[in-house]
């Protein structure tokens, strides 16, 4: 085997290891540094999912979405992920936004019934009419940050 060929193989091997390592350790989406692919009202995204979940999944899921809506309540019952509920559609339809625990102070500062702007990754639509005990439906966003 000639010397240039050995060098080429070594360089290729180092490159492959570097690429593999970076791919394996690539970071999660940084919501704060990501441009929102859609900006809309919380009630609008709820209607989109409630009307046609499959179509809404194709548009919104896995994307960073910016929403504006009325804060109905803060749900701090799970310390691993503080959450807020934005008004979606009456009393049985909400937009549920989950935050990292590091955002707790900002979540606590929010006032019920105020209008809030958030950005987060859309995960889908939870709840089902087939499950009678789980009557409410939520559009779910994760890794949210508060904009205003």
């Amino acid at each position: 085997m000639t010397r240039p060929l050995i060098i080429l193989l070594v360089v290729f091997a180092i490159g492959a290891v570097f690429f593999g390592y970076n791919a394996y350790n690539k970071p999660h989406t940084n919501v704060a540094q990501s441009q929102a692919s859609e900006t809309l009202l919380a009630s609008e995204i709820f209607v989109a999912f409630d009307t046609n979940e499959q179509a809404a999944m194709a548009i919104f899921s896995d994307r960073v979405i910016q929403l504006e809506g009325e804060l109905l309540s803060k749900d701090l019952s799970n310390e691993k992920e503080p959450q807020i509920l934005l008004k979606g559609n009456g009393e049985e339809g909400f937009v549920r936004c989950g935050f990292k625990p590091t955002e707790l102070t900002k979540v606590l500062a929010l006032t019920d019934s105020s209008t809030v702007k958030i950005k987060g990754i859309c995960m889908g639509f939870n709840g089902s009419e087939e499950l009678d005990l789980l009557d409410s439906k939520d559009v779910v966003l994760s890794n949210c940050i508060i904009i205003n």
Binding site: Y24, N25, K26, T29, M123, N126, D132, L134
Partner: peptide, 16 residues
């Protein structure tokens, strides 16, 4: 007893 869970909302330590 009923459960409903979104599959996409499972968070892994590694994005890949």
């Amino acid at each position: 007893l009923q459960f409903s869970v979104l599959i996409k909302d499972f968070e892994f330590p590694k994005a890949l």
